[in-house]
């Protein structure tokens, strides 16, 4: 029997005996479980998309999407998020080479791009609210705000997650748990990019076409 004895936690070194196959198996389980969670999030967003699709013409005499959206701003957001998805992938690639330095750099870039995205989104919201087009205005604006800000909320959670991981990797290096969590995080981040493709196309591009 292959038994791997390695101390990865000082406080509990006496207990830290992990069978080699068990550790792999555990990663596999966590990965699958997290993937199932992402699928539930897909369903959650699909519910919001359905609501948006039903309500998007209910402007109650207020403005429509085509008069409100600044597509230029949205393209910038899209490119920021897409690039951050790419750098997140690079961070995962650096994990394979056990290059802590590179992992951290790419993670930092991902964080900055994600934060810029969120700032742009918030400034868009702020502009809408200041011009009297808040979520209280109409069913269309309610569904717009909720759909887009639910995605934004996920981004915010992703940003906090990145900070936590960054500090942990900095302090403890690429421990088994950090590696696992970083891989799960990358799934989460790519998933958010995928959701954004649909927000970009359905809300903004179709909105510009007055569909």
């Amino acid at each position: 029997m292959t038994v791997l004895t390695t101390t990865f936690n000082e406080q509990r070194s006496s207990l830290a005996v992990l069978r080699f196959d068990e550790s792999n198996h555990f990663y596999d389980i966590a990965n699958f479980g997290f993937f199932v969670y992402l699928m539930t999030d897909f369903v959650l967003f699909s519910g919001l998309f359905a609501v948006y699709a039903v309500l998007h013409n209910n402007t109650a005499g207020g403005p429509t999407g085509s008069t409100l959206f600044n597509l230029h701003n949205v393209l910038t957001e899209t490119l920021l998020l897409l690039t951050s998805s790419f750098t997140c992938g690079l961070s995962i690639l650096s994990l394979r080479h056990r290059n802590k330095h590179k992992v951290l750099i790419y993670l930092a870039i991902t964080f900055i791009l994600g934060a810029l995205f969120l700032i742009l989104e918030l400034s868009e919201f702020k502009h809408l609210i200041n011009t009297g087009n808040s979520w209280r205005r109409s069913g269309f604006l309610s569904s717009f705000f909720v759909l887009v800000s639910t995605h934004g909320l996920h981004i915010l959670i992703g940003l906090i997650w990145m900070i936590v991981m960054f500090i942990r990797i900095l302090k403890r290096g690429l421990s088994r748990a950090s590696v696992r969590r970083l891989t799960l995080f990358s799934l989460f981040w790519h998933f958010l990019d995928i959701i954004w493709i649909f927000i970009f196309s359905i809300v903004y591009l179709y909105g510009a076409l007055n569909l």
């Binding site: 959650l44 519910g47 919001l48 609501v51 039903v54 309500l55 209910n58 402007t59 109650a60 207020g62 979520w135 209280r136 205005r137 109409s138 069913g139 269309f140 309610s142 569904s143 705000f145 909720v146």
Partner: peptide
């Protein structure tokens, strides 16, 4: 989760998902 959240937002933040009027359904 979505449905309850939207009802909550209607009630708390004055949104119009399911209200009568203002484009709710």
């Amino acid at each position: 989760t979505v449905t309850l959240s939207l009802l909550f937002l209607d009630r708390t933040l004055g949104m119009h998902f399911f209200t009568a009027g203002h484009g709710g359904n």
